[in-house]
Write a protein that binds this DNA or RNA. Structure first.
Lengths: 340, 340
DNA sequence: CCTGGCACTCGACTGTAACGAGTGCCAGTC
DNA sequence: GACTGGCACTCGTTACAGTCGAGTGCCAGG
C-alpha cells in the first residue's frame, strides 16, 4: 500500500489538471503537461494503484481519471502548499475593507469580497453573541407598557428586542431598571449572564420586581437561549459556474442547504481550533452537500475567535488558492475588528 | 383585430394548461380538457389569429403553442380573477405570523412564509426608513472618542452606526448631546430631518459644536443619503423547480440579479399606488430578469405603506394564485405591524 | 522497474429511418 | 359566414447502426 513519491506526484498532477480543465485526465496528457520523467505506461500502472487505493476513479471505462473525495483529501493534507496571495489579491482585500463604518458594513463587505476572490459561495458568521461581552444595555420606552431593549456587545453587534411589560412603568423606573441592569451585566460575557440575570430579579426593589422579571425573561431568551446567530451569504451565482458539471446537474440541494441557517452555522461556525478547516464532499455531514466542499476558518480581533467565515464550492476546487484566500480575509477582518 | 370571447377563452385555456403542465399545448388536447364546444380545427384557426397578434407562439413548427409575455399580460389583466385563498392557506399564514417577537422576526417569518406558499423566491423589504419617523436616538459611549449611535424608528427598525468623534467628549456632554438630538428629531419623519440636523449644529453650545458636527454628518449619512434599505430573501431553491425548462436553462442571471439589493428594491420597492403590481418577463427593466415575472405589493400598518414585498418566479407562473397569496400576506403583515 | 506495443472498451458523434404530435389548408356542411 | 372533417406536411424525438478515438490493461523485452 506504499504510495511512493512518484505516485503521489501523479495524484497531485491529476488533481491539478482536473481542477483546471474540469475534464477527466488521461495518462498521455499527464506526461505531456508535467515533467514526470516517465512514460504514459508507467503512469498508467501508478494510476491503477491509485485507483485501487480509492484516490481516483474512472467515470467510465474509456475515460481518464478523476480524483475521489479521498484523493482530494490526500492532496490537501500532504500534496499541496498554501499558495501565497498575489499582490493584486492583497490589494483587493485592503481596498475592499477600508472605509467600513460599522459591523454590518464589515460583514457585508467581507462576504462579497470572499465571493469575488474565490469565485465561490461565501459565508460569514457575525461575531457570535456567545463569545461577546455586554458593553451596554439600553432601555427605550415605546409606550407605558413597552420597552425596546437594545444590547450593544463589545464585538460591535447590536441586538434589539421588544419587551412587553406586565403593567405600566414610569419613565423614572425605566431609568432605574436601566441602571440596575447595566451595573450587573455590563462587561459580562454573555455566556455568564444567566446567574447574573437571576440575581437581578432577586435583588430588584419590590416595585420593580414584575417589570424586572419580564425583562429578565426576554434577556435570557434573546441573549442566551435563542442564540441569535447571524449569517451573511454572497456569491450564490457562482454555483452556476462550470455549467452543470459540478454538483451533478442539480443546484437544488445546495440552494436548499444554503437557506438553512443551522446548516451554515455548522459548516463555518464550529471553529474550535483556530486553524483552517476543509470539508471535502461526503466528509460533510449533510447529504445535500455531499457534492460540495467547504473551506472555513475562525476570525476575531487578535488571537480570540468570535466567529467563522468560509466558502462553499464544488469538490473540484482550487484548494490551495481558496485556503489562502480564506485565511487572508479572516486575518484582515480580525485586524479590522481589533481596531474598533 | 377583434378578439372575440372564444378566442379569449382559448388563450385562457392555453395559459392555464401551460402553467400546469409546463408543455406546449395543442389544439386537440385543448378541446379535450376544456369545454370549448368547438372542434380542434376551429381552435387552430383561433390560435393562428392569437399567434398573429403576438399572444402565443410556437417553440418550433410541429409543437403546440406557448403564451408570450404579451399573452400572460392579457391573461392577467382581463382573463383571470384573483383566486380566493384556501382555508388551509389562511391558517398557514396566521399560524406562521403569530408569535413574532420583533421586526426582524416578522420579516424573516414573512419571507419564509411567502416562499413556502407560492413555491417561488420571496422578497421582503424592511420598512423603509424614508417612510419612518424617529422614535428615539440613543448615544452610547464606547470610548472617550467613540459613540454608538442607535436610532429606533416608529416602524420598529433599529439602525446603529459607530461615530468617530474629533476629540474626547465627557459623559455629561454625551447626555447633553442625546437630549439635544432627541428634542429636535424625535417624532420627525426621516425625510424631514436634514434641515433639523442642520439647525442642531447651528444651535449647539460652542463646547459641543465639534462633536455635534460629526454627529450630524453621520446622522445624515446613515438616515438619509445612504438610505439604508434592508431586504430579506428566501426560497431561492424554488428556482430549480421545473427543471431547466424555466429560465431557459441558466439560473445564473437570476441569481446574479437576486444578489443586487438595488435590483430587488426596484422590483418590489416602488409601491406608489397601494395596488398589486405584476411585471411579466421583458416588461422588466433588467435584462437578467427577462425570463422572470415579479408580483409585488406594498404593506404597512393601516392604510399607509412602509415597504414592499413580493415574489419572483418564471413567467410561467400561477398568476391568480400568486397574486392572491402576495396580497393576503401583505395584509396580514400590515395588521401585525399595526398592533405594535 | 520501466517502456513500447497492442488489443480492447466504450462513450461521443454521425447518419438514417420510423414515428407522431401538431399544424395549415381546403372543400364541404349547416 | 362560421364551423368541421380530412389530409398532406413539418419537424422534433427516438431508436439504431456504424465509425472514431481517447484511454486503458497487459505483456514481453530492455
Amino acid at each position: 500500500m506504499g504510495l511512493d513519491d512518484r505516485k503521489l506526484a501523479v495524484l497531485r498532477a491529476i488533481v491539478e489538471d482536473y481542477v483546471s480543465t474540469q475534464e477527466p485526465v488521461g495518462s498521455k496528457a499527464l506526461v505531456e503537461r508535467h515533467q514526470l520523467g516517465v512514460s504514459p505506461a508507467t503512469v498508467r500502472n501508478d494510476m491503477a494503484v491509485l485507483e485501487e487505493e480509492g484516490y481516483i476513479r474512472q467515470p467510465h471505462t474509456s475515460a481518464g481519471r478523476v480524483p475521489t473525495d479521498r484523493g482530494y483529501r490526500l492532496f490537501v493534507d500532504r500534496l499541496s502548499r498554501v499558495k501565497p496571495l498575489s499582490p493584486a489579491e492583497r490589494r483587493a482585500i485592503e481596498r475592499f475593507l477600508v472605509g467600513a463604518v460599522d459591523l454590518d458594513d464589515v460583514v457585508h463587505r467581507t462576504v462579497r469580497l470572499l465571493a469575488q476572490l474565490t469565485r465561490q459561495v461565501a459565508v460569514v458568521q457575525y461575531p457570535s453573541l456567545a463569545r461577546s461581552s455586554v458593553r451596554h444595555l439600553e432601555l427605550v420606552p415605546i409606550s407605558t407598557t413597552r420597552l425596546m431593549l437594545v444590547m450593544i456587545a463589545d464585538t460591535g453587534r447590536v441586538e434589539q428586542r421588544l419587551v412587553e411589560l406586565p403593567g405600566p412603568v414610569h419613565p423614572d423606573d425605566v431609568t432605574d431598571l436601566r441602571r440596575l441592569v447595566n451595573e450587573k451585566l455590563a462587561g459580562a460575557r454573555l455566556s455568564d449572564t444567566p446567574p447574573l440575570v437571576q440575581a437581578l430579579v432577586e435583588e430588584a426593589p419590590s416595585e420593580l420586581r414584575p417589570a424586572m422579571t419580564t425583562l429578565s425573561t426576554v434577556l435570557l431568551e434573546t441573549l442566551v437561549e435563542r442564540h441569535e446567530e447571524r449569517i451573511a451569504l454572497a456569491g450564490t451565482a457562482n454555483l452556476t459556474r462550470g455549467g452543470l458539471l459540478d454538483f451533478q446537474g442539480s443546484l437544488r440541494p445546495i440552494l436548499e442547504a444554503l437557506e438553512e441557517e443551522v446548516v451554515l452555522l455548522k459548516l463555518i461556525g464550529e471553529t474550535e481550533p483556530s486553524t483552517t478547516r476543509v470539508l471535502i464532499g461526503d466528509e460533510n455531514e449533510f447529504d445535500n452537500l455531499r457534492a460540495a466542499s467547504v473551506v472555513s476558518t475562525g476570525y476575531g480581533p487578535g488571537a480570540t475567535i468570535v466567529g467563522g467565515l468560509g466558502v462553499l464550492g464544488p469538490t473540484r476546487m482550487d484548494y490551495p488558492g481558496t485556503i489562502a484566500t480564506v485565511r487572508a480575509v479572516a486575518r484582515y477582518v480580525g485586524e479590522l475588528l481589533a481596531q474598533n
